[in-house]
Structure formats: C-alpha cells, structure tokens
Design a protein around this nucleic acid. Structure first.
Lengths: 230, 230
DNA sequence: TGTACATCAGTGAACGCGCGTTCACTGATGTAC
DNA sequence: TGTACATCAGTGAACGCGCGTTCACTGATGTAC
C-alpha cells in the first residue's frame, strides 16, 4: 500500500469516526457532511473525494456496524469450548447487549428507525446483516445435531410458519438449515432486541434495578427451556 | 364552546393531522413547521398561534399517540367478558400490534429513536406512557387474585429484580401491585415490542410468512405457559 | 340595539443559520522513461 | 538520476434550498355596557 493509499485509508476512517461521534451527540438522523468537514478542519467539498454522497457514507457506517457486531459475536462464540452449546449461546447473547450498550447509536442505525431520505442498497446491507444472525444459527444447528437442543412441541409448530429455507456453511459445504433452528433463532432475536431497545430508550429505567442481570436471567430461562445448559 | 374556540380546536387538530402525514412520508425526525404551513396554505408564523414551538407540537403528537394506544387497549379489554383473563389479555396484545401496524410512525414516535434536538417534558409524557401499560397490569393482577394466572418459579425469581412498587386503582382505592405482576407485564412488553419492531422495520419480512399469525401464536404460548387460557 | 374596546388569527418581511452538491482551479504526490 | 506527465487531494465560490423564530402590523371576531 503506497503512502498515498495509506493516507486515504486514514481519512476514510477518520470521516466515519467523526460521523459516529456526531450520531452519538445528535442521533442517527443528523449525520451531516458539513458538520464532519468542520470537525476535520477541511473544506466541505473535500469529503466528496472519499464518499461520493451522504448516502454512501451512511451505507459505510451501516456495514461497519453490522460487521463489528458480527465480529463481536463470533469472538464471544469462540471464547467457549465448542461442545458447550448453551454457554456459547449465552456468551454471544451477552456480547450482543454489551455491544449495543457500548455503541447505542450503531445499534439504532441498524435496528432503529430508518434515516429520512436514505435508501439502503439491500444488495450490500443484507449479507452484512445476515452475518451476525448466522453465528447464532450455526450454534443452534450444532446443538440440535448433538442432541443438546431439545425443541418443545410448540417450537416445532412455530417452525412451520417460517417462510424461507436458509443455508449454513458446515465444513465448506452448504447445508439446509432445519426450520426449527431458524424459528428459535428468530425467537431469541426479537426477545434480545426488544429488551435492549426498551433499555436503550430508557423505558425500563424506573422498573428494572440491574438491566444487565435482568437480561441475562431472562435469556438463561429461555435457553434452559430449550434444554440448553448454561 | 364559542365559534372561535371551535375553529381553534379544528386548527389544532388539522396541524397535528398534517404533521402525522409528514411523519408517515419522511419519518419522525423530519416534522417541520414550514412544511406543515405549506400544506395548510397558511403562513409559517401563523402556526405559532397554536403551538408555541416545534417541541410543543411534537409533545402533543406523543401524548396523542400514547393516549390513542391506551384507548385502543382499553377498548380491546372490555370487548371480552371480564372473568376470561387470558382472552382479555390476548385481545389487548393483538390490539397493540394492529395499532402499531396501522400507525407505524406513531409507534416509532413513542418507542423508536428519539427525535434529534427534541426533549420530552417527562412530567407530561410519563403518565400518558403508563396508561397503556396499566391496562395490562390490571388484567394480570385480577387474574392473579382469581388464581387464573399461575406464575412459575422463574417468574418469582425475576420479580425480585423489579426496582419499583407500582400501584393500581381497584374500586377507587390504590393498591400495591405484586412484583410478579409487574415482572410479567415487563416480559410481555419487551416481547411484543421486539417482535413489532422487527416487523415494522422489515427485518423479518423474508423469514416469517404471516407476521400476524406468528405474533399471535408466540403470545398464546407465552400466556399458556403462565396458566392463562386463551 | 348600538357603540367602544379588547382579543385573537393571520400576514409579510426579515434574521441567521445549516444543508448537499457542483464547478473550475491550484498545488502536491507519484510514475514512466 | 532527472525530466515530463498523469493522478490525486483539497480549495473557494457559488447554487438553490429549507429551517425555526421574532417582529410590527392589519383586519376580523367577540364582549361589556
């Protein structure tokens, strides 16, 4: 990488970093190129050398958020011995909340209100969005094969309502994911997200003493009810 | 009410109505007095006769949303015979999703990202926010007294994590609400909200065939696990 | 019932601000021979 | 190693736009006697 390319990379990152700071102060909807230019002490048109438009910058931020969350999940997963499926899931689930609390605006960027006037290029954002979800699905699938995950009758009923067949990579080949795994993944997803959202937007502040402990206990109950030991 | 007061009331409502339309088109963050004035074919300063500032208009919209949702819940509750607690809860839970799907922007206004630059006067918004939650808590409390609601051991454990004592009005007097009722209310709340949010923001579009049926089945499982018959 | 006054709705002009984006350009950095 | 050229980063000026809010004002509606 040439000197020029290195400087360019630094500037690309600096712009995103300042944008994240601005979001943290004023919300996702107020990302503004002129404010970023001011903070970087650079003229406004200079930014167009790096991102051809405001939308492209937002897309870059969204992709970073999805990927950062997925990386965090993957790291939490591999921090546990691979045959302890419940502990692996629990580690990932706790990592998700910790990431959301540490990066509330990145979380809002991907799971909150859409930004007015911005249209996501789904061909780019969808694969990034799936990465984090795939971490959980893979663990659930392995747990099912090993007999550690024991779906209840109601889980099997709900599994029939899933409309897609997803595939997972296992040992280099793509395998059809059982619908019950997809269902349990979705169930865990909406429960974690729901609790995190209420916490982030202060709706439960007056009700729950220790949101982290509450979250953990809720999710342990969910995993235990599926036969998974944590 | 005098003729002048009537006209004033109509204008107050028209302004909110147009604001809701603008939100529906561009998101909650873009509520703009000048756009509203344009739509009403009136000069921009004229709006200041009705709402002293943009923040006051937003507050009015938020209060309307909370109250409308609470009214919808109360109506659903009273559509069922009072001794069928499970059915009453189910009716309320379904009404919440239907309201959210019918008024997605009102839902975002109260449960989604905060609006940049807007600060809610909590003394006004908190009581309105509690109204809808109170509908559910009252049913749960009555069901507990009647023995229809059967908390599991894990529910009692989680109840200990609640940090407030709430009160409910029963026959004109305020009664301390058991913590387990508050806990079950919170658990239902984050699960309904989580599922509704994922649906509203299209995250589950490709995964769930019929989101309404899925939601209903999920919530039925939750109520049944608490001993409540639907 | 008529008159005098107070109240209120609405206007046009202005203030001061920020926004995304385009354009023609200067000057520095890198590349080919 | 030196020169000629291409590439790239960054600038200042400008365009056209929308925003919330204040002000002094006009004219219509309501009220008191």
């Amino acid at each position: 990488m040439s000197r020029r390319e290195k400087l360019r990379q630094i500037m690309l990152d600096d712009i995103k970093q300042v944008a994240r700071q601005q979001m943290a102060e004023n919300g996702t909807a107020t990302i503004s190129l002129s404010a970023i230019a001011r903070a970087l002490e650079v003229s406004q048109p200079a930014l167009y050398r790096y991102y051809p438009s405001r939308d492209d910058l937002i897309t870059a931020l969204i992709l970073d958020a999805y990927n950062d969350l997925a990386d965090t999940e993957a790291a939490a997963d591999s921090s546990q011995p691979s045959e302890y499926y419940g502990r692996r899931l629990m580690a990932v689930i706790l990592a998700i909340r910790e990431w959301a609390v540490a990066h509330p605006l990145d979380f809002q960027l991907i799971y909150g209100n859409p930004i007015p006037g911005y249209h996501a290029p789904e061909a780019e954002t969808m694969p990034a969005a799936r990465r984090g979800f795939a971490v959980i699905l893979r663990i659930l699938y392995q747990a099912l094969l090993a007999g550690a995950l024991k779906p209840r009758p109601s889980d099997l009923e709900q599994a029939a309502r899933m409309s897609t067949r997803l595939q997972v990579e296992e040992n280099g080949q793509a395998i059809d994911l059982p619908q019950v795994v997809l269902y349990i993944g979705v169930a865990g997803w909406y429960q974690t997200n729901g609790l995190i959202m209420l916490e982030l937007f202060n709706h439960t502040r007056a009700l729950i003493a220790d949101p982290g402990a509450f979250y953990q206990a809720e999710m342990e109950n969910l995993l235990n009810s599926l036969g998974l030991e944590t």
